[in-house]
Amino acid sequence: MWAWFHKLSSPKYYYEWAGKWLPWLAGITVILMVVGLYWGLVVAPTDYQQGESYRIIYIHVPSAWMSMFVYVVMAVAGFVALVWKTKISEIVVSECAVIGAMFTALALITGMLWGKPTWGTYWTWDARLTSELILLFLYFGVIALYSSIEDKRVAAKAASMLAVVGVVNIPIIHFSVTWWNSLHQPNMDIISENPSMDPSMLWPLLVMATAFKIYFVWLLFIRIRNEIISRERTTNWVRKLIAES
């Protein structure tokens, strides 16, 4: 087990190992997306309270889940990068930051588009939207720090550190925002985002959530492989690889 992890931390082995997975990940993502979209947009019944706009949750909720999940993955990778100084985990941090920022932005945009027909306004300083916005800022911080340091290995370590500091702060930020929100939120007619959902509505959500997770792994693998090639461009194995293809 440990020997395998050790092997996986070598860029060359990782590149080949991840390459084998790519077609599978692509296939599963596409199948699950198609199934989830059809199920969510066509088969699932209309919500009697919110009407059709509730269907936005099939991308909003998975995006929001992913935005947090990716941050945790990034922080764990950052921790590993700081303690064991493995190259792959350093790359995971910088690539996760970009993908995570995308999911967070998606969660915000779809949340706003859901809010307009449901709450009558694109933006409310609702605890979850606010937390999500701050999460986006945290991702931007990691990306900005990583891209402003020239030496990419130092940059990755600094970004890892920031990710770890951020993950310690996220519960505190989330708690303070929720608490702040309960103080200031005027009595608004908020329809809960998912009150105990009917299975006919819940299943497509679970399918979409799985699809998003696998999509994340897929995109992450592609991006990691790119970054490996970019960083190892002077090594023999990359040259051989390029020359052969």
């Binding site: 911080g141 930020i173 303070s176 925002v177």
Partner: peptide
């Protein structure tokens, strides 16, 4: 850059 990194982390202090 410092502002970008640090200000989000200052939010709980601001709130409380």
């Amino acid at each position: 850059l410092l502002g970008l990194l640090v200000l989000p982390l200052y939010i709980p202090v601001l709130i409380f």
